[in-house]
Design a protein around this nucleic acid. Sequence first.
DNA 1: GATGAATGAGTTTTCATTCAT
DNA 2: TATGAATGAAAACTCATTCAT
Lengths: 204, 204, 204, 204
Amino acid sequence: MKRLPRNPERDQEIRKERCDQILSAAVALFAKNGLSSTKISDIAHKAHMSHGLIYNYFQSKEEIYISIVEKNLCILTSLFEQAHRLPDASSYEKLTWLLDQVYCERWDDAVFYQVVADQILTSDSVSDQLKTSVRTSIGDNLKLLTRIFRVGQEKGELIQGDPRELAFYFMNMIQAVLLAETRGIYFTGTPLHRNLLQLFLPKA
Amino acid sequence: MKRLPRNPERDQEIRKERCDQILSAAVALFAKNGLSSTKISDIAHKAHMSHGLIYNYFQSKEEIYISIVEKNLCILTSLFEQAHRLPDASSYEKLTWLLDQVYCERWDDAVFYQVVADQILTSDSVSDQLKTSVRTSIGDNLKLLTRIFRVGQEKGELIQGDPRELAFYFMNMIQAVLLAETRGIYFTGTPLHRNLLQLFLPKA
Amino acid sequence: MKRLPRNPERDQEIRKERCDQILSAAVALFAKNGLSSTKISDIAHKAHMSHGLIYNYFQSKEEIYISIVEKNLCILTSLFEQAHRLPDASSYEKLTWLLDQVYCERWDDAVFYQVVADQILTSDSVSDQLKTSVRTSIGDNLKLLTRIFRVGQEKGELIQGDPRELAFYFMNMIQAVLLAETRGIYFTGTPLHRNLLQLFLPKA
Amino acid sequence: MKRLPRNPERDQEIRKERCDQILSAAVALFAKNGLSSTKISDIAHKAHMSHGLIYNYFQSKEEIYISIVEKNLCILTSLFEQAHRLPDASSYEKLTWLLDQVYCERWDDAVFYQVVADQILTSDSVSDQLKTSVRTSIGDNLKLLTRIFRVGQEKGELIQGDPRELAFYFMNMIQAVLLAETRGIYFTGTPLHRNLLQLFLPKA
DNA sequence: GATGAATGAGTTTTCATTCAT
DNA sequence: TATGAATGAAAACTCATTCAT
């Protein structure tokens, strides 16, 4: 398949490439079917490799899962930080930017993030360590988003109320809207995600 | 357990009782762990019976799952209809009533409904028949809720915008808030679900 | 197969019976082929049951292995204690009795004990916990045998020298002789194990 | 590693060197963990090469194993012959020399020899050809040792009794003592192997 | 020769489902 | 009805071996 000469650097590249192939295949399948309904052989098939090869890159199915969850939580954290630091942007613009990022560019990952995160926090088959890590990460993300809301409220750009609650509503709205659009089931017209923001504008 | 005299009616009652035992146990486990991670023996254990007995009441694990999903969708439909018909109630009061119902009385079931419904609609391991049924049911529920929103907007009691979108937002908020409270992770103060309604009040 | 009525007591009996079937099958196979070359399906086949059933009685192949090792170490300890307490017996008679016990009655188990114990103490794939347990148990057994030797020496019935060393030689001889006879390869005449004792009689 | 000029002879040397590296690594691992628990990649790691390279020198894992077994049996045969031919040596001295050789110089190999030989003779996963070869070789070695014992008995230097049996006892004692010392578990004082000979001296 | 990515047959293990009692 | 022993299909995971580079 590969026509490039083998050497340590090339091997590293191949490793990276294969890991990404596996993660890409896995994220879509996990998002659709959940951890235990997703078979390693499905992932392998989707990633165009033998099931055995997956174990050259990951210890177990669970490890793939964890990798994805942690990666997604990091991405989200990063997005929230970037939104907060957007120069010369109103709160409205920051939130719009956020929605656009999640919606347009990180489709599957973002969808997966929340679905999975919810499952993780209650599932009996997940280690406490992972649960704690996820809970912490979600908490951190919520704080970042809360900060954006607080600033917006001070400027009178956003609706009044506990900013932490509003941030929480907003975070879940993102998920809901994305899920709906991904699954293409409820709406066929203009994307939902832009209208969503109207709810958070101030009352008069 | 019960020692009442046996007769055909009594037998029917026992059957009903056993079915409910099984469904109650199953709904909580499915909600936490999903379909494929939930073992028949777990359900049996939680329902205080042997796993063999479950097959006297249900054909398969899938059948239990489907029973629960359909039951929950019906309950939700019923709730929406009741809310719509509440006499002398403003839209605000109807929505409040809905939230209270879901929140206070049908805890696990309601939580289960959405988590599961989402999974069902995408999962490869679910029959198309069930998917269609679920999609239809969700659509019906959304229509009922849309109607409430439309009436509320006409009376100036709710925020402007496409009532179907608003209904959709609202439905997903219910789920998100319930999940958060069930899991007891994000907030420790007053229940979220009452504040949520502020978002849907009209702008000035 | 079974024609007795089912009830909790009968179920217990069945469980005990099945465990014994599994252990009997396993001990012979482990002794012949070692832990990792013995397949669960081999054990199941030899025990006349499906491989799945084995997991109703043991958590894993390793657990079967550990059960056998610990059982055998206990049996050996018990034999040594009995030999020590034999009334009105000379040391010679005690050791003869021991050899006869191991040789005539506990064939496979005894053979297995040492082969396995040796492997366990060096193998990388055995938990430290099991290693320590085995080492302790072997040490205890050696002490019991040493006591028999010490008493024999005091009465002038056995060869002089460090009784602990002699006990160690003796213990290993038992194994060697048993292995040879079990495998039927070296000698075809009278059983070796009785002549062995001559080595431990006093010099003149 | 080595930078000598390449030529056919040099290539042969390198081949030999690589083979020895592999065999040295393998003997220790096989001795500890047995054939099936020892992984090719473990051997490769211990021999400081890639696992693929091993297949340039050996056809299969089994071939490495067989090489080692046969090599060890040859070494032992050679030792027994040398001992028999030691000029001006008493039987006691010959046996002492043997013990010293095995003990001091061929540590791992000797330990491996017996443990493995025992396994080979019973294991289902070993070819009959190898079994026969091993059985013959062990028989030959036993004959050589028997001859030493017979001569010793004629000179009155060793204990009376069937010389073949005594040779067998002695051979197994060597193994037992070596195992004990290798594993460093039973004794911490002077090496066992010298005292062992006392058992074989004549009675008075 | 040397490397390690890739394969897939072979094992362990799980668990829904059946069935004798 | 009720039980849990028993089965076996299916999935996770291992690792000897091959082969392109």
